Amino acid sequence: MIGASTGGPQALTTILSQFPQDFPAAVIVVQHIDAQFVQSFAAWLNEQIPLPVQLAIAGASPQPGKILVAGTNHHLVMRPDLTLGYDKEPLNFSYRPSVDVFFRSVAKNWTGKGVGALLTGMGGDGAQGLKLLREAGWHTIAQDRKTCVVYGMPKVAVELKAAVEVLPVEAIASACISFTAKHLIK
């Protein structure tokens, strides 16, 4: 699970382009981007990386080897049946879709292990949710200051001790691949 904002498209390309075509885990991305641009963003990502990228649609389930991107101005959420959906609530979040709302829903509903990464961006969206993922036993990563365009979201995560690791963007994919090999492949 990856959350990003300002500088996210380039960071995501750096990370996702390192995943092999046979990557055995599902990847879900919440990027702060207006819905009118998200289709073009997903198409652009598809041209940059080896794994297929699609917009997350309500009712879809995460699938190994596929990347789903939040596709509306509503908040992407994981439902108790492990399908994805969209919620208007909470209305008072300035960032839409919210990384925090998504990470919180994953921490609440996903019973397995995984990796949560919080990338470059303004503000603190995603930090509280990343902490909940860590408390739920997930491996959590914050992008380091040096490689962030804006060291806001990851900085808050570090201050909250939400991140197990703080890594340069170039090392995040390797950490995800390593975790997957140790914990998800049977």
Rank of each mutant, 00 (worst) to 15 (best):
G71T: 12
G123I: 08
I67R: 12
A181C: 06
T6W: 01
L45T: 12
C176E: 11
R134H: 12
R134K: 15
A136D: 02
L184R: 10
A181Q: 14
V158E: 13
M78S: 08
P50H: 10
Q36M: 07
R104M: 14
K186P: 15
R96M: 00
T140S: 07
Y86H: 09
Q36W: 01
F93W: 07
V69I: 14
K161R: 13
S5E: 01
K186T: 14
F102T: 01
L130I: 05
I67T: 12
K113C: 10
V53E: 07
P62F: 04
A56Q: 13
R104Q: 15
V101E: 03
F19I: 12
L160C: 02
T147N: 04
R145L: 01
V27L: 11
P154V: 04
I141P: 03
G7R: 11
E89W: 03
K66Q: 15
I2V: 13
V29D: 11
C148L: 07
G3M: 00
P24M: 05
V29I: 15
C148G: 08
N109M: 03
G59W: 02
Q39D: 12
L167I: 09
H139M: 11
V53L: 09
T83K: 05
G129T: 13
H139A: 00
C148I: 04
V149A: 14
K155A: 15
Q54T: 14
L68A: 10
I2M: 15
I15S: 04
V77G: 02
K131P: 00
I185S: 13
Q48D: 12
V158Q: 08
K155I: 05
G152Q: 07
S178L: 10
N92R: 09
V99N: 01
G152M: 04
V53R: 08
C148E: 06
Q63S: 09
G85W: 05
F19Y: 15
K113Q: 15
R134F: 00
T111W: 05
K108D: 06
I33S: 01
Q128T: 05
L45R: 12
F103L: 09
L68G: 03
I15Q: 03
P62G: 14
A56Y: 11
Q143I: 04
D144N: 15
K88W: 10
Q63M: 11
A181R: 13
A42E: 05
K66C: 13
D81E: 09
A171Q: 14
G152I: 03
A142Y: 01
E135A: 10
R134P: 01
A35R: 11
I2W: 03
A142T: 07
M1C: 15
L68H: 02
L119G: 07
P50A: 12
Q128S: 08
G3W: 00
D100M: 02
L68D: 01
T147Y: 01
A56D: 13
T13E: 14
T72L: 06
N73Y: 00
V99W: 00
L184D: 10
D22Q: 11
I33C: 02
K161L: 11
L84P: 11
A127H: 02
C176D: 11
L91N: 10
W44L: 12
G65S: 06
V169W: 03
A107Y: 00
P24K: 08
L91Q: 13
Q31H: 11
L45S: 13
A56W: 10
T14N: 06
L82H: 14
S105I: 05
R104Y: 14
V30L: 10
Q21H: 12
I141G: 03
I15C: 05
